[in-house]
Simulated scan of single mutants.
Amino acid sequence: MGLYRSVRAVSEASGSGPIDWEAVAEASKAGTDSGTLDISTAEREGYATDVRDARDRVRSVSGIDFDLPDRVQIINRHHWIDNNIETFRRVMTPLEDQVGMFPSAARVINSGSMTVALSFLARNVLGQYDPLLLADGDGADDHALYFVYPNIAHVADSLAADDDRFRRWIAFHEVTHAAEFGAAPWLSDHLESRMEDAVEKLAAGDIDREMLGELDTTMTAVEGYAELLMDRAFDEEYQDLREEIERRRQGRGPVQTLIRRVLGLNMKRRQYERGKDFFDAVADARDIEFAGKVWERPENLPTDAEIDAPEQWIRRMAE
């Protein structure tokens, strides 16, 4: 029944834009089990404690004074879809007039593609620090922190990992991203402007490879610095968890592997690896405080060439 409702919602996509977002929301949730939110009071307190501990540890290790969202949200998969569909919609706004020669058919195809993407991500995302890029800034919280409880519980069980330890690992990782955006108040605007420019060029039928490359390099720095903080701040060894996650990723079937490739998740994995190697080299050659210079201003971001040659970035920052 869920699959039928999902297909029907997409097939009935309507409106004037290239994507019927209401149909995408309905279809994504119809085709995705929401998962349980049957969580004990002790577990909820555990999340809050882990986030507070992560904030204190990351502040201590990095020297960055940053704030967290007022509320830590423990959500199910449908909540995640609702929270993120608005982000996708904001990013895709410049494409609203680009439906094509056969608008009804194109709208169904586009809506179906977005449904597949959101459904896949909703089943796989564990935690998320959301800087709410391109949001209106109407006085609401300007960032958010989500934990997708059914996904965390499922993965911890599939890895035979200790639930509390696995939850704490996810909490620390997401808090490191909060530290980055706290250290660099300009980072949200920097990413927003690059995203808007790239999508507007795409809407005009042009692929700005230079802009996309710059975005990739920036996200490589974001992911790499988060890994550096994780390694220094997490209060116990976690290499076994990282290895288990990697084995789980490699064990995916061909359909999941294809979807990950289409969504660019393999590129995200490369961002982790390149960024981690870069910041490990910088911290080893100097220290973690020197590595934090990356967030002082946009000009301090490493270039793509410097990511693979961190000594060049070190020399530039030391000048």
Rank of each mutant, 00 (worst) to 15 (best):
Gly100Leu: 14
Gly137His: 06
Asp157Leu: 03
Asp189Ser: 13
Phe147Lys: 06
Ala27Arg: 01
Glu26Lys: 07
Leu133Asn: 13
Ala48Leu: 05
Phe278Trp: 07
Gly139Phe: 11
Phe181Trp: 05
Leu159Ala: 07
Val24Ser: 05
Leu95Ser: 09
Ile152Asn: 00
Ser113Leu: 08
Arg261Cys: 01
Asp67Ile: 08
Arg274Phe: 04
Met1Gly: 03
Ala305Phe: 02
Pro302Leu: 08
Leu118Glu: 08
Glu192Ser: 06
Met92Gly: 03
Asp277Thr: 03
Glu12Met: 14
Val294Pro: 06
Tyr129Lys: 07
Phe172Trp: 02
Ala283Asn: 09
Ala318Leu: 08
Arg269Ser: 15
Ala183Ser: 13
Glu296Met: 12
His154Glu: 12
Met267His: 07
Asp33Gly: 05
Gly46Asn: 00
Gln256Glu: 15
Ala105Thr: 06
Phe102Met: 10
Ile152Lys: 02
Asn76Thr: 07
Val148Glu: 02
Glu45Met: 05
His79Lys: 12
Ala42Arg: 05
Gly224Ala: 15
Ala318Asn: 09
Asn151Lys: 06
Gly17Cys: 14
Ser188Ile: 00
Gly137Ala: 14
Val99His: 12
Asp208Ser: 06
Glu243Ile: 08
Asp53His: 01
Ala233Lys: 02
Asn124His: 12
Pro298Glu: 04
Arg260Val: 02
Glu306Asn: 00
Ser113Gln: 11
Gly15Asp: 09
Glu192Arg: 06
Leu215Trp: 01
Ala283Pro: 00
Glu192Ala: 09
Leu187Cys: 14
Ile259Tyr: 09
Gly137Asn: 14
Pro310Cys: 10
Gly17Lys: 02
Val116Leu: 12
Glu243His: 12
Pro150Asp: 03
Leu121Val: 04
Thr41Glu: 12
Ile288Gly: 10
Ala13Asp: 08
Ala198Cys: 09
Arg315Ala: 15
His78Tyr: 04
Ile109Lys: 11
Ala204Met: 05
Val99Thr: 13
Glu306Pro: 00
Glu223Asp: 13
Arg247Gly: 01
Glu180Asp: 12
Asp304Cys: 10
Ala144Val: 01
Val255Asp: 14
Val222Trp: 05
Asp136Pro: 00
Ala106Cys: 06
Met317His: 09
Ala48Asn: 02
Phe279Trp: 01
Trp80Val: 08
Asp277Ile: 04
Ala23Leu: 12
Ala318Val: 02
Gly127Ile: 03
Asp162Cys: 03
Pro298Lys: 14
Val91Asn: 04
Arg77Leu: 11
Ser158Trp: 04
Leu202Ser: 04
Gln239Thr: 10
Lys201Ala: 05
Ser14Glu: 05
Glu214Thr: 01
Ser28Pro: 02
Val10Arg: 02
Ala27Ser: 14
Asp50Cys: 01
Gly264Thr: 10
Ser158Glu: 11
